[in-house]
Amino acid sequence: MAGFLALDQVDLALLGALSEHPRAGDLELSRLTDVARATVASRLRRMGEAGVIADWDPTIDVAAAGFEVQAFVTLEISQGALDEVADHLRDIPQVLSASVTTGSGDVLCQVATRSHPELQATLVRIDQSSSVVRSTSVMVLSVLVEPRVLPLLASADPAPSRRAPAYRG
Rank of each mutant, 00 (worst) to 15 (best):
I53E: 01
A63V: 09
V85Y: 07
G66L: 05
E28T: 14
G103S: 11
A6I: 05
A6H: 10
A36G: 15
T101D: 07
Q9F: 01
Q70T: 05
A36R: 14
D57T: 13
I92V: 13
G105P: 02
T113K: 02
P22C: 06
Q70H: 04
I77P: 06
A112Y: 02
S42Q: 13
A98S: 15
L18E: 02
R45C: 01
W56G: 03
H21P: 03
L7M: 08
D106H: 11
V73Q: 01
T39P: 01
Q94K: 00
A50K: 02
V73H: 05
D61Y: 02
D61R: 01
G25N: 09
P58D: 04
R46I: 01
G105Q: 03
E49S: 09
A64W: 05
D11F: 08
D106G: 04
V10F: 00
E49T: 10
L89N: 01
A65P: 03
D8R: 01
A98H: 12
V73K: 02
R37Q: 15
A65G: 07
A98E: 02
A13C: 08
S99R: 14
R31K: 14
D8G: 05
S78P: 00
T39I: 04
A38T: 15
L96Q: 13
T59H: 10
Q79D: 13
A63L: 04
A63I: 00
S30D: 12
F67Y: 15
F72K: 08
L75M: 13
G48R: 11
A36T: 12
A36V: 13
W56Q: 07
S78W: 05
V73N: 04
D34A: 12
V100T: 13
L32E: 06
H88S: 05
G48T: 14
E84M: 07
G66Y: 04
A38N: 15
E49L: 09
S19D: 12
I77Q: 06
G66I: 05
E76G: 06
L5K: 08
R46F: 02
A6D: 11
V107E: 05
S42T: 14
L108T: 11
L12T: 06
D11K: 09
T59L: 10
L96A: 12
V100P: 03
H21T: 15
I53T: 00
E28S: 12
A6Q: 11
H88N: 07
D55H: 10
H21L: 13
S78Y: 07
L15Y: 06
G48L: 08
G105R: 01
A41P: 02
D55F: 05
R46L: 05
L89H: 04
A41I: 09
T101N: 10
P58I: 05
T74N: 13
T39F: 04
Q94H: 08
A86D: 09
E49C: 06
L44R: 14
V107W: 08
Q110W: 06
R31S: 12
D83G: 12
L7C: 07
Q70N: 10
V62L: 14
D61C: 00
G16I: 07
A65R: 14
I53C: 00
S19M: 07
Q94D: 04
Q9P: 01
V62N: 04
L18F: 05
V100A: 11
Q94A: 14
R43M: 03
M47G: 06
A71V: 12
R43G: 00
E76H: 06
E28Q: 14
L18P: 00
P117R: 00
I60L: 15
